[in-house]
Write a protein that binds this DNA or RNA. Structure first.
Lengths: 204, 204, 204, 204
DNA sequence: TATGAATGAGCATTCATTCAT
DNA sequence: AATGAATGAATGCTCATTCAT
């Protein structure tokens, strides 16, 4: 590796890190104030620069939230896919998917909040159609687990699986609103309680 | 009643109705696009008038959302208070409160969505401090039900009631996101399924 | 005079009086808040009607101030013309013109305030060119008095009559800002003090 | 001084100058059209920019007039205070205060016009309470001079000093309406004539 | 005569974005 | 990399004016 090359790498790495810092600041603000209510100047200030400077790193405000959300979804699905590929039974899969969700929440709290708050609005924008795709895939994943569970007699027969799916979809991320990585309850503990509550409610 | 009087009443009623129409249009838009992202011109157009005309009926955009939310909360609490005053046991109170919530949701779908989406942001504004008061009262109401249930041995002893409260708080309104008055599932049916799922999860 | 005719007259008189009431209310508001800062609704409310009703009596807000100012100027000039036609000497004419001014101020306080505050702005509007004409005539009137006085040796020879004219023009109406018809100082008394002060200052 | 430092200074100075240019343009327009009747777009255009750009330099239209007026009053009072602290007799103090006023007028013509036109309206706004304070201080200053002069027998005994004060208050700035720095009459010359006229009128 | 709902142009202000430095 | 002055479209809101009743 030539010095020239090493230098370029150093710059590229520094640049990448600055981007990450800005993105983290943006995610925190988008999560707490909402995307529309957050100004790019606020993001810039939180990242220690001026408004105009942001545009050296990012094309637009939209690019920032796009990067935040797509990064989060990529990791989330990597984890979900690992679970569903494991060939477990319905109850175990249920448990593992919920646990995976809380693991993701722990690693991407701000992104989860943004995802929850802004998905509906952003999904109408073609650029963010992957949000709708993700929703669809999420629905298929859960319906498969739930329907299999009902068919196998593991879950209660009279269950409206469409309703249960919606219930899970709407509740699984809700802890993001108040969860703190260094709070009194660990993500695992919350997952355990969630599972105890909901799984008991649907088991045959 | 003199004709003069009847005339006055007719005008007052017509005016009140126009206000209600505008408010309904505003609620629908605030719910689907978010308060900040909805322009007063959009509200006006939905109500069949021009932007400036809105201000004949309302002081400000803020006044509109204020009227929407305070009206909704007033009705919601009238219903909740009726339930808690009935002196039922924990499980029955649980059931009735959930049922009441879905009844409210049925009558005020848009307001519920707005309440959920915008409470956090609006609550920082002194004018909307009643939103925080409502949250507090909601918390006390549920903790009382849950703690009593645990003490009486009706609910599982190992329940973290603070966590369950948060879960209920965040969950009870979520159906607002997809519920339709004229949809396949009635509010009562959804409430029933919801109760079956969660109540089973927490019963001893 | 037929009853029909009398009736019409009665209506016409009532109508004229309502106009006068509105105009008085408008003058008071224009004087205290400024023409631009006064809304037609405020004028209407002060006259005991609603905004739209004003337009039964007047074409526009501009028409109101026009009527206020032209009425005032007509009376003012009738009085001034009487003085200058009397053939008095410079000092007596000076005294009488000042006295006339304060008499006018007493009768048209609000109009005087408006005239002072708004002339400059309104004068640019062709509709109000008579304001500029009045200014010009006022200037000629005073320069004639002052120049004659200097020529006759009644006023100090080194007087810059252009400057004195401007001084009088700018000061003669100033009491309008604080004068009250029922205040401790009568218009005559104020005129006397004004004359004592300024006439002493310019007499030879 | 390092290049870095010099550069910073240069930017700060350039920025300060741009602000001053905008402020001068605003003052000229506020003076000639009135504060309320002047739009920020007009100010911006006069300063060679677009409406929105003004807000890079100033918080609001109100901030602009605030800066104009408070700057003017600060300088005015520095000059007045110097005069009153000199311990001169009533007639000399009178002369010096009038001269100071015309000096101020020469330096701040537009601000003086604005002060005169808008003080009454703005004074009701708490942010501009200093305008009322200034009025009060001005009154006390002049009454002290006049009352002392009457007591010492320098001014005429029958003088209504309250009336004379009002006259001076309303009069001293009136030349602002027509004074031009490059006009035929210098500020000193106008002050001299003004003093000759009014001082002669009040001397014993 | 008067009402009151509605109009629509105009206003101060905000903010994502650009660009010369 | 970052600055900071400027842009310009869009926003909430005001207000003189209109008009059917």
């Amino acid at each position: 590796m030539s010095p020239r090359q090493r230098d370029t790498d150093g710059n590229a790495a520094a640049r990448e890190q600055r981007r990450a810092e800005v993105l983290a600041a943006a995610a925190e603000l988008f999560a707490s104030r909402g995307y529309a209510a957050t100004t790019v100047r606020e993001v810039a200030e939180a990242a220690g620069m001026l408004g105009g400077s942001l545009y050296y790193h990012f094309d637009s405000k939209e690019s920032m939230i796009n990067e935040i959300l797509s990064g989060f979804l990529t990791e989330m699905w990597a984890d979900y896919d690992r679970v569903t590929a494991a060939g477990l039974g319905p109850a175990e899969t249920f448990t593992e998917l919920i646990t995976s969700s809380f693991r993701t929440l722990d690693a991407h709290r701000a992104a989860v909040v943004i995802y929850q708050k802004e998905s509906g609005q952003l999904g109408r924008n073609p650029r963010f159609s992957y949000l709708n795709d993700s929703q669809r895939k999420f629905r298929e994943m859960w319906l498969k687990v739930l329907d299999t569970g009902v068919k196998d007699g593991v879950f209660r027969a009279e269950l409206d699986t469409g309703l249960v799916y919606r219930f899970i979809r709407d509740t699984v991320w809700l802890a993001a609103g108040w969860y703190r990585h260094d709070g009194p309850l660990s993500a695992e503990e919350i997952a355990r309680q969630y599972i105890a509550m909901v799984l008991n409610g649907i088991l045959a």
